[in-house]
């Protein structure tokens, strides 16, 4: 009986908190996600569509959302928005594969070792799908199945992205 009451209470708590969490997620990230999508699509309507689709995707993956205002959740929402924008780009046939420009981060103070920085810069120069897979796995600690859910692709695709991304990274670093 106690277990049943606990189960009911947990279910109630979960439903209320997930709804509230989703709403907080929306208000926290809608403008940032639009910003990211618009940077790639250069089209207001398409960018809004990307944001809408991204929030639907996020709603299906709410269990991966922890603290709403955390760097981890920010990475998750930005990745979903960028991925959705890429998918819409494929449909709209526009250029999308833009890497992060170093001038965007020149205000950062680098405290890590030089080799870490060089590898980090090489990661940022990778094509977006490889970069996303590598960052989600090695920085955020998601497993391949979770990455597949975030990127809305198969686990096998994720494994290929990681393998090819690392191969390309190794090749870039060999040239250094």
């Amino acid at each position: 009986m106690g277990l049943r009451i606990l189960t009911v209470c947990l279910a109630l708590i979960e439903d209320v908190s997930e709804k509230e969490k989703f709403e907080r997620l929306y208000w926290q990230y809608k403008d940032l996600m639009f910003y990211c999508a618009h940077k790639r699509l250069h089209d207001v309507q398409l960018a809004e569509d990307a944001v809408n689709i991204s929030f639907l995707h996020a709603a299906k993956n709410m269990s991966m959302v922890g603290e709403v205002a955390s760097a981890r959740t920010k990475r998750l929402m930005v990745t979903i928005a960028e991925r959705t924008a890429i998918n819409l780009y494929h449909k709209a046939q526009k250029e999308y594969n833009r890497t992060v420009r170093m001038e965007d981060v020149e205000s950062m103070v680098y405290t890590s070792e030089e080799s870490d920085r060089m590898i980090a810069e090489a990661i940022l120069e990778l094509p977006l799908p490889y970069r996303q897979a590598i960052v989600l796995k090695y920085s955020q600690g998601y497993n391949n199945r979770e990455i597949a859910a975030i990127l809305d692709c198969s686990v096998a695709k994720v494994e290929k992205l990681l393998a090819r991304g690392k191969k390309q990274l190794a090749k870039q670093l060999e040239e250094v």
């Binding site: 910003y35 990475r75 590898i119 955020q140 690392k166 670093l173």
Partner: peptide
């Protein structure tokens, strides 16, 4: 330059932070 899992992990954390920092808060 040798790319080990550990160096990749450290660099990915740094790259992640750099990329997120480039976005507006």
């Amino acid at each position: 330059m040798k790319l080990t899992e550990e160096t990749l992990r450290r660099a990915a954390v740094l790259a992640d932070a750099m990329e997120l920092a480039s976005l507006p808060d």
